[in-house]
């Protein structure tokens, strides 16, 4: 198991997170607010586009505070990708408080520190990238994400 602790502004997270996404072979689960300044970075776009070709499923769980209409304008490329691959990419909106995680293949996990005040303009400050944790930890993350996903509004 390896753990990488990251702290700083969004630029610090671009390379590790795109690297994490590039490791995906089976599935990618994201719980996110699709922060445009982050997800419009070229590295992230390339990584997600590459994922679409490799993995069988990508589930994007939007934060309950996310405004889908605004996001459709600001990160339109993700919604375009969804329209082109409706079976592979699923997008849902959370109904309860979710934390911003990225789960890759039951092996790689990105855990973001919870924002204490909901402010879409404040980027995440702390992240953990956990590679190949013990199975009980991996299963706990997946189980929690599935719980959020089952409750979320689909379509």
């Amino acid at each position: 198991m390896e753990i990488e602790a990251l702290e700083g502004n969004i630029d610090v997270f671009v390379e590790p997170i795109s690297g994490l996404l590039n490791k995906g072979e089976n599935f990618i689960d994201l719980s996110t607010s699709l922060y445009p300044a982050f997800y419009n970075k070229k590295e992230l776009k390339d990584a997600i586009n590459a994922c679409v070709k490799k993995v069988t499923k990508i589930r994007i769980l939007l934060d309950k505070n996310a405004n889908i209409n605004t996001l459709k304008k600001e990160v339109s490329w993700i919604f375009d990708l969804h329209d082109k691959n409706p079976k592979k990419i699923e997008i849902a909106k959370a109904v309860n408080d979710v934390e911003h995680w990225i789960l890759v293949d039951e092996k790689y996990f990105r855990i973001e520190a919870k924002h204490k005040h909901v402010d879409e303009e404040v980027p995440a400050l702390k992240n953990l990238i956990i590679s190949k944790p013990p199975q009980i930890i991996a299963k706990a993350f997946i189980r929690q994400f599935n719980y959020w996903w089952d409750l979320a509004q689909k379509g």
Partner: peptide, 15 residues
């Protein structure tokens, strides 16, 4: 597990 717990505590601290 202890390592993950330690790091998560760091993650949750003063954010």
């Amino acid at each position: 597990v202890a390592e993950v717990v330690k790091r998560m505590e760091w993650l949750l601290r003063d954010n």
